[in-house]
Nucleic acid binder design. Structure first.
Lengths: 126, 126
DNA sequence: GGCATATTCAACCAAATGGTTGACGATGAA
DNA sequence: TTCATCGTCAACCATTTGGTTGAATATGCC
Protein backbone atom coordinates (compact mmCIF):
# COMPACT_ATOMS: atom_id res chain seq x y z
CA UNK A 1 0.00 0.00 0.00
CA UNK A 2 1.26 3.46 -0.87
CA UNK A 3 0.80 6.19 1.70
CA UNK A 4 -1.20 8.25 -0.77
CA UNK A 5 -3.68 5.46 -1.03
CA UNK A 6 -3.97 4.73 2.63
CA UNK A 7 -7.30 5.62 4.16
CA UNK A 8 -7.65 8.28 6.76
CA UNK A 9 -4.12 9.40 7.17
CA UNK A 10 -2.60 6.16 8.25
CA UNK A 11 1.06 6.01 7.49
CA UNK A 12 3.82 3.70 8.48
CA UNK A 13 5.79 4.56 11.55
CA UNK A 14 2.91 6.44 13.00
CA UNK A 15 0.85 3.43 13.78
CA UNK A 16 3.68 1.42 15.19
CA UNK A 17 3.04 2.49 18.73
CA UNK A 18 -0.65 1.70 18.43
CA UNK A 19 0.26 -1.69 17.03
CA UNK A 20 2.57 -2.50 19.88
CA UNK A 21 0.42 -1.03 22.63
CA UNK A 22 -2.71 -2.84 21.54
CA UNK A 23 -0.80 -6.06 20.95
CA UNK A 24 0.70 -5.77 24.41
CA UNK A 25 -2.74 -5.29 25.93
CA UNK A 26 -4.18 -8.25 24.05
CA UNK A 27 -2.59 -10.76 26.40
CA UNK A 28 -4.27 -11.47 29.75
CA UNK A 29 -0.98 -12.21 31.49
CA UNK A 30 0.36 -8.83 30.46
CA UNK A 31 -2.80 -7.05 31.55
CA UNK A 32 -2.54 -8.83 34.89
CA UNK A 33 1.05 -7.66 35.21
CA UNK A 34 -0.03 -4.09 34.52
CA UNK A 35 -2.70 -4.40 37.18
CA UNK A 36 -0.12 -5.62 39.65
CA UNK A 37 2.16 -2.71 38.83
CA UNK A 38 -0.74 -0.37 39.41
CA UNK A 39 -0.26 -1.09 43.09
CA UNK A 40 3.46 -0.67 43.26
CA UNK A 41 6.76 -1.08 41.48
CA UNK A 42 7.96 -4.66 41.50
CA UNK A 43 11.02 -6.76 40.83
CA UNK A 44 10.84 -9.25 37.98
CA UNK A 45 10.88 -12.22 40.33
CA UNK A 46 8.02 -10.79 42.35
CA UNK A 47 6.03 -10.08 39.23
CA UNK A 48 6.48 -13.70 38.22
CA UNK A 49 5.54 -15.14 41.59
CA UNK A 50 1.73 -15.45 41.17
CA UNK A 51 2.00 -16.98 37.71
CA UNK A 52 2.67 -20.55 36.84
CA UNK A 53 4.66 -19.87 33.74
CA UNK A 54 8.41 -19.69 33.84
CA UNK A 55 10.41 -16.69 34.91
CA UNK A 56 11.84 -16.47 31.42
CA UNK A 57 8.34 -16.17 29.99
CA UNK A 58 7.53 -13.38 32.42
CA UNK A 59 10.78 -11.69 31.51
CA UNK A 60 9.71 -11.78 27.88
CA UNK A 61 6.32 -10.33 28.72
CA UNK A 62 8.00 -7.54 30.66
CA UNK A 63 10.33 -6.85 27.76
CA UNK A 64 7.38 -6.59 25.46
CA UNK A 65 5.53 -4.27 27.82
CA UNK A 66 8.65 -2.14 28.09
CA UNK A 67 9.15 -1.96 24.34
CA UNK A 68 5.55 -0.86 24.03
CA UNK A 69 6.31 1.86 26.54
CA UNK A 70 3.74 0.58 29.00
CA UNK A 71 6.30 -0.02 31.72
CA UNK A 72 9.83 1.10 32.41
CA UNK A 73 12.55 -0.99 33.94
CA UNK A 74 15.43 0.17 36.06
CA UNK A 75 18.15 -2.07 37.37
CA UNK A 76 19.28 -1.35 40.89
CA UNK A 77 21.82 -3.79 42.13
CA UNK A 78 20.88 -7.18 40.81
CA UNK A 79 17.19 -6.38 40.89
CA UNK A 80 15.37 -4.95 37.90
CA UNK A 81 12.47 -2.83 39.04
CA UNK A 82 9.40 -2.58 36.86
CA UNK A 83 7.23 0.48 36.93
CA UNK A 84 3.94 1.22 35.25
CA UNK A 85 3.97 3.98 32.63
CA UNK A 86 0.33 4.87 32.21
CA UNK A 87 1.12 7.72 29.86
CA UNK A 88 1.82 5.24 27.11
CA UNK A 89 -1.85 4.42 27.04
CA UNK A 90 -2.82 7.95 26.21
CA UNK A 91 -2.34 7.72 22.45
CA UNK A 92 -4.28 4.49 22.26
CA UNK A 93 -6.95 5.88 24.50
CA UNK A 94 -7.29 8.95 22.33
CA UNK A 95 -7.58 6.73 19.28
CA UNK A 96 -10.39 4.80 20.90
CA UNK A 97 -12.18 7.96 21.96
CA UNK A 98 -12.44 8.79 18.28
CA UNK A 99 -14.85 5.95 17.89
CA UNK A 100 -17.06 6.69 20.72
CA UNK A 101 -19.20 9.12 22.29
CA UNK A 102 -18.78 6.97 25.35
CA UNK A 103 -19.04 8.74 28.59
CA UNK A 104 -15.46 9.92 28.89
CA UNK A 105 -13.18 9.48 31.83
CA UNK A 106 -15.37 7.62 34.21
CA UNK A 107 -13.31 6.32 37.04
CA UNK A 108 -16.30 4.76 38.68
CA UNK A 109 -16.77 2.65 35.63
CA UNK A 110 -13.16 1.62 35.78
CA UNK A 111 -13.38 0.61 39.38
CA UNK A 112 -16.51 -1.35 38.70
CA UNK A 113 -14.72 -2.99 35.85
CA UNK A 114 -11.75 -3.89 37.96
CA UNK A 115 -14.05 -5.29 40.57
CA UNK A 116 -15.88 -7.40 38.06
CA UNK A 117 -13.13 -8.55 35.77
CA UNK A 118 -9.90 -8.41 37.65
CA UNK A 119 -10.25 -8.65 41.38
CA UNK A 120 -13.10 -11.10 41.62
CA UNK A 121 -11.87 -14.65 41.09
CA UNK A 122 -14.81 -15.86 43.16
CA UNK A 123 -17.00 -15.48 40.14
CA UNK A 124 -17.44 -19.03 38.94
CA UNK A 125 -13.80 -19.61 38.33
CA UNK A 126 -13.86 -23.04 39.91
CA UNK B 1 -2.10 -22.20 35.74
CA UNK B 2 -4.73 -23.02 38.28
CA UNK B 3 -7.42 -20.44 38.77
CA UNK B 4 -6.88 -20.35 42.50
CA UNK B 5 -3.35 -19.24 41.94
CA UNK B 6 -4.05 -16.74 39.23
CA UNK B 7 -3.33 -13.15 40.13
CA UNK B 8 -5.94 -10.48 40.25
CA UNK B 9 -8.87 -12.64 39.49
CA UNK B 10 -7.95 -13.62 36.02
CA UNK B 11 -9.79 -16.68 34.92
CA UNK B 12 -10.42 -18.22 31.61
CA UNK B 13 -13.43 -17.12 29.62
CA UNK B 14 -13.77 -13.98 31.64
CA UNK B 15 -11.23 -11.83 29.91
CA UNK B 16 -11.94 -13.13 26.47
CA UNK B 17 -13.57 -9.98 25.23
CA UNK B 18 -10.64 -7.79 26.19
CA UNK B 19 -8.31 -10.28 24.57
CA UNK B 20 -10.19 -10.28 21.32
CA UNK B 21 -10.91 -6.57 21.22
CA UNK B 22 -7.32 -5.55 21.87
CA UNK B 23 -6.01 -8.19 19.49
CA UNK B 24 -8.38 -6.90 16.82
CA UNK B 25 -7.16 -3.36 17.38
CA UNK B 26 -3.51 -4.38 17.20
CA UNK B 27 -3.56 -4.63 13.41
CA UNK B 28 -3.25 -1.43 11.36
CA UNK B 29 -5.37 -2.78 8.53
CA UNK B 30 -8.19 -3.51 10.92
CA UNK B 31 -7.90 -0.10 12.54
CA UNK B 32 -8.03 1.47 9.09
CA UNK B 33 -11.15 -0.53 8.33
CA UNK B 34 -12.76 0.70 11.52
CA UNK B 35 -11.87 4.26 10.57
CA UNK B 36 -13.49 3.79 7.19
CA UNK B 37 -16.62 2.41 8.78
CA UNK B 38 -16.73 5.44 11.03
CA UNK B 39 -17.83 7.39 7.98
CA UNK B 40 -20.48 5.01 6.74
CA UNK B 41 -21.54 1.41 6.43
CA UNK B 42 -19.75 -0.35 3.61
CA UNK B 43 -19.89 -3.48 1.50
CA UNK B 44 -17.00 -5.92 1.84
CA UNK B 45 -15.75 -5.15 -1.66
CA UNK B 46 -15.75 -1.44 -0.98
CA UNK B 47 -13.92 -1.95 2.29
CA UNK B 48 -11.27 -3.88 0.40
CA UNK B 49 -10.87 -1.35 -2.38
CA UNK B 50 -8.19 0.95 -0.87
CA UNK B 51 -6.02 -1.95 0.26
CA UNK B 52 -3.56 -3.90 -1.75
CA UNK B 53 -4.17 -7.21 -0.04
CA UNK B 54 -6.63 -9.72 -1.39
CA UNK B 55 -10.36 -9.63 -0.87
CA UNK B 56 -10.11 -12.90 1.04
CA UNK B 57 -7.68 -11.32 3.47
CA UNK B 58 -10.04 -8.39 4.00
CA UNK B 59 -12.87 -10.84 4.51
CA UNK B 60 -10.86 -12.53 7.22
CA UNK B 61 -10.12 -9.21 8.89
CA UNK B 62 -13.82 -8.37 8.84
CA UNK B 63 -14.68 -11.74 10.30
CA UNK B 64 -12.24 -11.13 13.11
CA UNK B 65 -13.61 -7.65 13.75
CA UNK B 66 -17.12 -9.09 13.81
CA UNK B 67 -16.19 -11.88 16.20
CA UNK B 68 -14.66 -9.25 18.47
CA UNK B 69 -17.96 -7.41 18.32
CA UNK B 70 -16.39 -4.32 16.81
CA UNK B 71 -18.51 -4.48 13.68
CA UNK B 72 -21.71 -6.21 12.62
CA UNK B 73 -22.41 -7.65 9.22
CA UNK B 74 -25.74 -7.92 7.50
CA UNK B 75 -26.32 -9.52 4.15
CA UNK B 76 -28.78 -7.74 1.90
CA UNK B 77 -29.04 -9.29 -1.52
CA UNK B 78 -25.62 -10.40 -2.50
CA UNK B 79 -23.95 -7.57 -0.62
CA UNK B 80 -22.79 -7.96 2.95
CA UNK B 81 -22.89 -4.63 4.70
CA UNK B 82 -20.44 -3.89 7.46
CA UNK B 83 -21.34 -1.55 10.25
CA UNK B 84 -19.24 -0.15 13.05
CA UNK B 85 -20.29 -1.19 16.55
CA UNK B 86 -18.55 1.34 18.75
CA UNK B 87 -20.14 -0.01 21.90
CA UNK B 88 -17.74 -2.93 21.84
CA UNK B 89 -14.94 -0.50 22.52
CA UNK B 90 -16.46 0.79 25.68
CA UNK B 91 -15.20 -1.98 27.92
CA UNK B 92 -11.68 -1.71 26.57
CA UNK B 93 -11.82 2.06 26.69
CA UNK B 94 -12.86 2.02 30.31
CA UNK B 95 -10.04 -0.34 31.11
CA UNK B 96 -7.49 1.90 29.44
CA UNK B 97 -8.79 5.16 30.80
CA UNK B 98 -8.57 3.75 34.26
CA UNK B 99 -4.89 3.10 33.86
CA UNK B 100 -4.23 6.40 32.19
CA UNK B 101 -5.94 8.28 34.94
CA UNK B 102 -3.87 7.01 37.76
CA UNK B 103 -1.54 9.80 38.59
CA UNK B 104 1.80 8.11 38.84
CA UNK B 105 2.46 7.91 42.54
CA UNK B 106 6.18 7.79 42.37
CA UNK B 107 7.17 9.66 39.27
CA UNK B 108 10.79 10.30 39.98
CA UNK B 109 13.56 11.85 37.97
CA UNK B 110 14.64 8.63 36.39
CA UNK B 111 11.28 7.91 34.97
CA UNK B 112 10.85 11.44 33.74
CA UNK B 113 14.17 11.06 32.00
CA UNK B 114 13.01 7.85 30.38
CA UNK B 115 9.80 9.42 29.27
CA UNK B 116 11.63 12.29 27.63
CA UNK B 117 14.18 9.98 26.13
CA UNK B 118 11.80 7.47 24.69
CA UNK B 119 9.22 9.79 23.24
CA UNK B 120 8.65 8.77 19.68
CA UNK B 121 9.95 11.21 17.09
CA UNK B 122 7.11 13.24 15.71
CA UNK B 123 5.96 11.41 12.65
CA UNK B 124 4.95 14.04 10.17
CA UNK B 125 1.95 12.41 8.68
CA UNK B 126 0.70 15.16 6.43
C1' DG C 1 37.07 -16.71 46.45
C1' DG C 2 32.89 -19.22 46.41
C1' DC C 3 28.09 -19.54 46.51
C1' DA C 4 23.27 -18.09 46.13
C1' DT C 5 20.06 -14.96 43.91
C1' DA C 6 18.19 -12.22 39.96
C1' DT C 7 17.57 -12.01 35.30
C1' DT C 8 18.41 -12.70 30.56
C1' DC C 9 19.89 -15.37 26.52
C1' DA C 10 19.66 -19.09 23.08
C1' DA C 11 17.66 -22.75 21.10
C1' DC C 12 13.79 -24.98 20.41
C1' DC C 13 8.59 -26.10 19.89
C1' DA C 14 3.45 -25.71 19.00
C1' DA C 15 -0.02 -22.80 17.86
C1' DA C 16 -1.78 -18.59 16.08
C1' DT C 17 -1.60 -14.89 12.58
C1' DG C 18 -1.75 -12.68 8.14
C1' DG C 19 -1.19 -13.47 3.74
C1' DT C 20 -1.83 -16.08 -0.86
C1' DT C 21 -4.50 -18.68 -4.62
C1' DG C 22 -8.18 -21.21 -6.67
C1' DA C 23 -12.63 -23.19 -6.28
C1' DC C 24 -17.16 -22.53 -4.83
C1' DG C 25 -22.16 -21.00 -3.51
C1' DA C 26 -25.35 -17.21 -3.80
C1' DT C 27 -27.36 -13.51 -5.91
C1' DG C 28 -28.64 -10.01 -9.48
C1' DA C 29 -28.93 -8.80 -14.34
C1' DA C 30 -29.35 -9.63 -19.47
C1' DT D 1 -30.61 -19.66 -18.87
C1' DT D 2 -26.38 -17.63 -18.80
C1' DC D 3 -23.17 -14.63 -17.09
C1' DA D 4 -20.94 -11.46 -14.04
C1' DT D 5 -20.47 -10.00 -9.29
C1' DC D 6 -20.09 -10.60 -4.18
C1' DG D 7 -18.08 -12.94 -0.75
C1' DT D 8 -16.44 -17.06 1.68
C1' DC D 9 -14.00 -21.45 2.05
C1' DA D 10 -10.09 -24.61 1.94
C1' DA D 11 -5.55 -25.49 1.53
C1' DC D 12 -1.31 -23.84 1.87
C1' DC D 13 2.85 -20.88 3.38
C1' DA D 14 5.94 -17.77 6.17
C1' DT D 15 6.28 -15.28 10.27
C1' DT D 16 5.15 -14.19 14.92
C1' DT D 17 3.84 -15.47 19.48
C1' DG D 18 3.95 -17.61 23.90
C1' DG D 19 5.81 -21.08 26.06
C1' DT D 20 9.69 -24.40 27.49
C1' DT D 21 14.54 -25.69 29.19
C1' DG D 22 19.32 -25.12 30.17
C1' DA D 23 23.25 -22.20 30.10
C1' DA D 24 25.15 -17.68 30.92
C1' DT D 25 25.74 -13.15 33.13
C1' DA D 26 25.51 -9.94 37.09
C1' DT D 27 25.29 -8.89 41.51
C1' DG D 28 25.19 -9.44 46.62
C1' DC D 29 26.73 -12.03 50.66
C1' DC D 30 29.77 -14.98 53.67
Amino acid sequence: MVDDEMPLGLCRGMVLSLDTVFAALADPTRRAILSMLLEDDMAVTDVAEPFEISLAAISKHLGLLASAGLISQEKRGRVRWCKLEPDALREASVWMQGFGQFEPVNLDAFERFLAAELVAPEAECD
